[in-house]
Simulated assay, not measured.
Amino acid sequence: MSDGWHRPLRLHELARGPVSLALAPDDGERAAVAKRLGLSSLPALKAQLTVKPWLDGAEIAGRFDAIVGYVCGVTLEPFEQAVSGEIHARAVPAGSPNAPTEAGSGEMELDLEADDPPDVLSGDAIDVTEYVIEHLSLEIDPFPRKPGATFDYASDAKEESPFAVLKKLKDPKP
């Protein structure tokens, strides 16, 4: 079993143009991703990405399809569910003039309609699998419920009014 799933792509590999990638981790890599994301299993994961030059960095776009193994929060039974999503991200090398600047003080303006700022790479390579794992983690249901599972709870204790409880405290029985 490997320690994870990695597919680095060096920025200089984009000099000739866009690079298309079909990614599919093996059994050990899927198990490592499932453990990392707190899933009971990850029976399938495939991603189709295109990485193209963007300014002095790269733009990653594509989609992923997965089958995720959950444990039902109601019945505690395992079940599987299909999950898919789109990937769109940008990255620039450290020291790039296009890297987002850290605002030390003052107000920060947010434009909810604007694209996210690019990620800053620590080296000259992009681990494209990290973008797949990140976007997969955003699609995972934090409170999975098996289809058809219902939560029916009926308390056995008779509910007393707060005043009845206070009366018992005032007039204790001998």
Rank of each mutant, 00 (worst) to 15 (best):
S2W: 09
D26A: 13
E80C: 11
S84E: 11
A99K: 10
P93S: 08
A149R: 01
A154V: 12
L14F: 00
S161V: 03
I60V: 14
E139P: 04
D27L: 10
S155D: 15
H88D: 12
T50D: 06
R30A: 07
L14S: 05
F151E: 15
H6S: 09
P97Q: 10
G123I: 00
G38D: 03
P97K: 11
R30F: 05
W5C: 02
Q81G: 02
A58M: 02
D111S: 06
R63L: 03
A154E: 14
H88E: 13
K168D: 09
L45G: 08
S155E: 15
P172M: 09
A66L: 09
P78R: 15
L21M: 08
S84C: 09
E134M: 11
D127V: 01
P97M: 04
E86V: 00
K173Y: 07
F163C: 00
R30N: 08
P78A: 09
L11M: 14
P18S: 14
S137N: 15
A61H: 04
M1I: 06
S2V: 08
L11Y: 01
A66G: 00
S96A: 01
G106W: 14
P144L: 08
A34K: 14
T75F: 10
K170H: 07
L14G: 04
D56E: 02
V165L: 14
I67Q: 13
E59P: 03
A15P: 02
P142N: 06
L166P: 08
T101L: 14
V165M: 11
D56R: 02
G148Q: 12
F163D: 14
S41W: 09
L136Y: 08
L110Y: 06
K35A: 08
P144I: 00
K146T: 11
R90G: 01
A125W: 00
T50F: 04
A82Y: 02
D26L: 08
G4P: 03
E160N: 06
P97H: 06
E159M: 11
P117L: 07
G104N: 09
V128P: 01
I140N: 10
G85E: 06
H12F: 03
S2C: 07
V19R: 15
P172A: 11
S41A: 15
P174G: 14
A58E: 01
S155N: 12
A125Y: 01
A58C: 03
G73Q: 10
T129I: 02
E113G: 14
M1K: 12
M108Y: 11
L45E: 05
Q81I: 05
R63H: 15
L23P: 07
A66W: 02
V51I: 03
T75M: 13
S2F: 07
D3T: 07
